[in-house]
Design a protein around this nucleic acid. Structure first.
Length: 257
DNA sequence: CCCCAGGCACAGC
DNA sequence: GCTGTGCATGGG
């Protein structure tokens, strides 16, 4: 029966928009609605909806969904317990960083399911954000399992498991727009569903974890860092994509600000 | 028409 | 080890 749970979390130095217009995997299959200030995403067999009130200085999240442990899940996933003031103090190394911190106050690194993260970042290689989103959504839509509301209507799809995707053919991944990454997805799903334990390797330290991740075809240095950081919460990881590289070169090796 | 996008595997040194 | 190259696809 319909007993929708609602919980509340108060926040400081958190901003939903900055977080979800940034670089985390949830961006690729969750739905962020800027007008309504809501984020909707599948978590297990339920659909989570998060609504943000206030601003990065003083905010509030209202969470709705059918699951009892949801509040804890959201706090973990959005890393709401991160000590942002301490982090800002550490990374405020120059005026460029100070400006960035001010401008994007409340942008959080998120903590995601390792497999979801792996899929998203395999798709991300040599690709643009719009297409990454399109491909990811298409795969979830097509191969995820139904998430039902109380009346039995399909409201969303869950993120497909390793076993789900191991059954998918390269041709089907191509039909989702994956292009040359189709065979990486196929091999990753087969490998991760049979020869590798994504939960278990989470207990390894950063170096060893990264080494394990790079055994997956289609996962190289940068994607492994993304998975380590956003799939496992290894804060030592520092993924350098073309934008980070470009910015660092511009700011620290040419102009100087 | 060309170029590029949240890199990667692979070949050839 | 290091460097160069092809890669599916869509948008600018």
């Amino acid at each position: 029966m319909a007993q929708e749970r609602t919980s509340q979390i108060t926040t400081t130095h958190f901003d939903l928009r900055h977080t979800f217009e940034s670089a985390n995997p949830l961006t690729f299959f969750g739905d962020y609605n800027h007008g309504e200030r809501t984020l909707t995403y599948p978590a297990g067999r339920t659909l989570v909806k998060v609504r943000f009130f206030g601003d990065s200085r003083k905010g509030k999240l209202i969470i709705t969904g059918g699951n009892a442990g949801l509040k804890k899940e959201v706090i973990a996933r959005l890393r709401l317990n991160d000590d942002m003031e301490k982090i800002y103090a550490i990374i405020a190394t120059d005026s460029f960083m100070e400006h960035a911190i001010k401008k994007y106050d409340g942008m959080h690194v998120t903590l995601n399911n390792p497999w979801e993260t792996t899929v998203c970042f395999i798709i991300s290689q040599y690709n643009n954000v719009k297409r990454i989103r399109k491909i990811t959504k298409s795969i979830v839509e097509r191969f995820g399992q139904d998430i039902l509301d109380d009346n039995g209507n399909v409201v969303a799809k869950s993120f497909p498991t390793t076993a789900d995707l191991a059954e998918v053919t390269i041709k089907e991944f191509m039909e989702c727009g994956a292009g040359f990454r189709a065979r990486y997805l196929k091999e990753a799903a087969e490998y991760c569903s049979s020869s590798m334990d994504l939960d278990k390797i989470g207990r390894h330290d950063y170096d060893s974890l990264k080494e394990e991740l790079m055994e997956i075809k289609g996962v190289g240095d940068k994607v492994a860092d993304c998975i380590a950081l956003m799939g496992y919460g290894k804060l030592e990881a520092f993924p350098i994509d073309v934008w980070v590289k470009r910015t660092m070169e511009r700011v620290y090796f040419k102009e100087r600000t």
